[in-house]
Design a binder for these strands. Structure first.
Lengths: 275, 275
DNA sequence: CGATCGTTTGACGGTGCTCAATCACCGTGG
DNA sequence: CCACGGTGATTGAGCACCGTCAAACGATCG
């Protein structure tokens, strides 16, 4: 487990200065329903490309800022425009558990609908921008734009499927397998966005990865160097390069036991990218 | 991990005889949108209590039957009426991973929307009944019944929140803590349905629990007897009785390390319920 | 350039996975 | 009625992986 030395007390009283910018700030506004549809990864149909929709806003946060805090009253839905978040939950014993990472096109805050409060917190891993859709306008917005309605449905469907992927990461026994699956997940997400599927830059730290995978952060470090020793990838801090995608896939296929070190793996001593 | 001795091959060729009843069978039909709303845990408003809705069907399955298989084309949404399911995914190495358990009021198959195929399979743990809402009729149904639209939204929100709960179960390090959280989860679900929160009958076997929690099924057995030794609960096969709810809560609060055996725990030697 | 945080590596101990045997429970058929 | 085989649950023994504690290293930012 993580055991990140971040007791509840410390987190609470440390309410950071920039935390103020989590209050709605939608200065330029002027966003249309079509913009949201596009952010969700769909092409807006004609009627959605209309004028700015009243109530629809945007919000920017700096790295480390929290978009929503667990337990906060929720009055809006968020759609990530750029940047990435970690979604976490704080256990009663004060240790935080990362449940998912969210990137462009992902929907945040929907779990809050059924109780009116956020059940998970969202923290920006880098500078981010989101659309803000107040619950109050959602029904009208969906009525006015069938494309938005459909896009939201599909996005939620994706979200649910993602939860299953997350569970499968934590399902594997061996730490290397978990990490291999995580790297593949990051790679797939990058590819979806049109970025390189082999040269990755992680937006999250080892601690967050460890928390997601359910292992100690030292174990993540060791697993990274192990995968590098096997010649599957280069690791330099948060810069990862996949060297042997096929062998990496093979490593993820092992659920139980340990993956035998691939015989044909080219034993590149782990070298640094920047070197 | 599980390692349930259920290789892919065996599962596939064993396609059971009763598997045929997974083909749509909606003989009595006559279900209304209001029925579905009620199954989702809401009171249907006036207009939803109308006549039978065309396309809306029901389906019954016997214990062990599969409602949907991973990879199958999906053309409908399911709402559980009674009984319970396990939702699972089969890894490429042939071992199955339980991702969640679903009971009355839960929505199944929504993750399939964005790709048109089921990404997880659903297997009945007991005799079950579900409503079948074809995708084709969903839009019209939601338009015709705002109550259904709202109920579905809320149900999906619940579903997403549940995914987070699942992750938190697997987050704990110690097996006893994971199991304690699982028991609490079952208890909470039972209470929601108006059943006893202390006397529980598990609808799933040790293997399935183990798979969900990410431990070996032997470990689940051991953890059960350990919790019983601590006096937290009685265990007799699938019949569980919570003896000390407060101590159980305390046990779930520990995320890292091992929970110290509660000092004041009444050391009831684990006795059998049936004895 | 110093301070702070994140990452890496080491050593050790413990928990849980593996393998295996036993028991309890059923439905079947002798 | 009682063997019989099959499945699921429980318990035991041994070993290895990973969590813990600790320290060194590196990066980033002031």
């Amino acid at each position: 487990m993580d055991l990140s030395p971040t007791p509840l007390l410390a987190r609470l009283e440390a309410a950071p200065a920039w935390s103020v910018d989590r209050h709605r700030a939608m200065p330029p506004a002027g966003a249309t329903l079509g913009d949201v549809v596009r952010a969700l990864g769909f092409e807006p149909e004609g009627e959605a490309a209309g004028p700015a929709f009243p109530g629809l806003g945007t919000q920017r946060l700096r790295a480390g800022a929290t978009l929503s805090r667990e337990g906060d009253p929720a009055d809006a839905l968020f759609v990530v425009r750029y940047g990435s978040f970690k979604c976490q939950r704080v256990s009663e014993d004060g240790y935080e558990q990362v449940l998912a990472f969210a990137g462009p096109g992902d929907v945040l805050g929907f779990e809050a609908l059924h109780v009116g409060r956020h059940t998970t917190g969202a923290v920006a891993l880098e500078d981010v921008g989101v659309f803000v859709l107040p619950w109050a306008m959602l029904r009208e917005g969906r009525r006015q734009s069938p494309a938005l309605d459909h896009a939201l449905q599909v996005a939620l469907s994706r979200q649910l499927a993602r939860a299953a992927e997350m569970a499968q990461m934590m399902a594997a026994v061996a730490a290397e397998v978990r990490l291999a699956r995580f790297v593949q997940w990051v790679s797939a997400r990058a590819a979806e966005r049109g970025l390189s599927a082999t040269r990755l830059r992680l937006s999250m730290g080892r601690r967050d990865i460890a928390s997601l995978l359910g292992v100690a952060h030292e174990t993540v470090s060791r697993a990274f160097t192990t995968l590098a020793d096997w010649g599957l990838l280069h690791v330099n801090n948060r810069d990862i390069e996949i060297l042997d995608a096929e062998a990496l896939r093979a490593a993820t296929r092992v659920t139980r036991g340990l993956p035998d070190e691939p015989a044909g793996a080219r034993r590149l001593a782990r070298t640094r990218l920047a070197a």
